[in-house]
């Protein structure tokens, strides 16, 4: 099968700081990629490049056959992006916000209102359609953002920590939605810190550290290779400089004895 996302020798630096060092990944349609790594590993930068927000990188990024730098618009119309931290224009109401997003994707307004309303209703926000989002909780905003990212039925869905702020029931809804979207042939790029969820939803896990891919495979492959039990342990094993239990021992010592040199 032809990869839907193909990243070749991707380098990116901010000033003198090299953030991505030679990343190469091929992603097939229908895959759910769990993209994980410690803070500052280059996760957000990769996501921004895939969304066409950053274009001054070196290397080759092709999405569904389009070069992202040559055909950014074609790429953007097949990607749905859900940014983290509930970034939206919160003085607008969900209805106003969704019609903006819908128009930007060139969707007819009937489709926007139909789909937007239906999706928000499914999320339990039907009654909030015409309230300004200033007063919304983080979870409510996140639901609006997820709706806005899926409104145009994209082939590729890029999620950046999409579950932050959602309550337990909504987490279940979104997790199941991800599996169903993948089953229907959507490609999902899931960037997150939450190991347990990544472990469950993704069928391929890519771990990056200091701008390099340090592990790539299904969860069971990673388990076999590393000999650890959970994704959390694999993650710690591959990215931490010091053993976690040593660090917690030291912390315990300081709390109990007043210094770390006990």
């Amino acid at each position: 099968m032809e990869p839907i996302i193909s990243i070749r020798n991707l380098y990116k630096s901010y000033g003198s700081k090299q953030v991505l060092k030679d990343i190469s990944i091929d992603i097939l349609p229908g895959q759910v990629i769990g993209y994980i790594g410690p803070n500052g590993a280059g996760k957000s930068t990769t996501v921004k490049i895939l969304c066409g927000l950053i274009s001054d990188f070196s290397g080759q990024v092709t999405i569904k056959g389009y070069d992202i730098r040559q055909n950014p618009l074609a790429v953007k119309s097949i990607i749905g992006y859900v940014p983290e931290l509930a970034e939206l224009y919160d003085v607008l109401t969900p209805r106003e916000f969704l019609s903006l997003v819908g128009a930007l994707y060139n969707l007819p307004s009937e489709v926007v209102s139909e789909r937007g309303y239906g999706m928000l209703e499914a999320f339990g926000l039907a009654g909030n359609m015409d309230q300004r989002m200033e007063s919304f909780s983080k979870g409510m905003k996140q639901k609006v953002l997820i709706t806005s990212g899926l409104l145009h039925n994209p082939d590729i869905i890029i999620l950046d920590e999409p579950l932050s702020g959602l309550d337990a029931n909504s987490v279940i809804i979104v997790k199941e939605l991800i599996s169903k979207l993948a089953a229907s042939g959507k490609t999902i790029f899931y960037s997150s810190h939450m190991m347990d969820i990544v472990e469950k939803v993704s069928d391929r896990i890519i771990l990056i550290n200091e701008g390099k891919v340090v592990a790539d495979g299904t969860f069971s492959e990673l388990k076999q290779k590393q000999g650890d039990n959970s994704l959390e342990q694999i993650f710690a094993h591959l990215t931490a400089t010091e053993s976690m239990s040593e660090a917690s021992d030291k912390l315990m010592d300081i709390i109990a004895n007043g210094d770390g040199k006990a």
Partner: peptide, 15 residues
């Protein structure tokens, strides 16, 4: 100049 534009408008297919 709203920096949120970068995350909301720019990822959409807007030339």
């Amino acid at each position: 100049i709203d920096t949120r534009d970068n995350l909301i408008i720019l990822p959409k297919p807007v030339s």
